[in-house]
């Protein structure tokens, strides 16, 4: 019978990992339903290169989209609140992602999530 080693002598820092299984994927599902182009992003970074807000602060729509897709929604609301909705990203996106609606839908989903958070969060 296989015996499990409890401690190899090092402790694994779980915080470093994207714990995909434990993450919250509801936001991604809700957003994708409202704005299906969420799935079209190829992470080329054109949006974040042209982004007005990213000239002044750390903000990348490309990363926001990935974080939503991976279910990494902690602290994300603060991220999306930096957007000025100017629409430059939408004008340069090679995949025709509706970036402005994505921001709005992500914000809405996260707000609803924070209001009724406990119901949606897995233990």
């Amino acid at each position: 019978m296989e015996k499990k080693v409890k401690n190899f002598g090092y402790s694994v820092t779980r915080d470093r990992q994207i714990d995909f299984d434990a993450n919250n994927h509801d936001v991604g599902k809700i957003v994708a339903l409202a704005e299906p182009t969420l799935h079209l992003c190829i992470s080329c970074g054109t949006c974040s290169a042209t982004c007005t807000a990213s000239q002044f602060t750390e903000f990348s729509l490309r990363q926001v989209i990935l974080l939503v897709r991976r279910g990494e929604t902690k602290g994300l609301l603060k991220e999306v609140s930096k957007c000025m909705l100017c629409g430059k990203c939408q004008l340069v996106c090679p995949r025709n992602v509706s970036t402005r609606n994505l921001i709005i839908q992500i914000s809405r989903a996260l707000c609803n999530h924070e209001v009724s958070g406990s119901a949606m969060l897995k233990p």
Partner: peptide, 28 residues
Amino acid sequence: RGRLSESTEDKDGNIIVKVEDTLLGKPL
């Protein structure tokens, strides 16, 4: 790794390129 969003020109005719260095996650 980053797709160009736009370019501008400086006084000497150099081209200033705007991309996101997506692997570093920073505009470049």
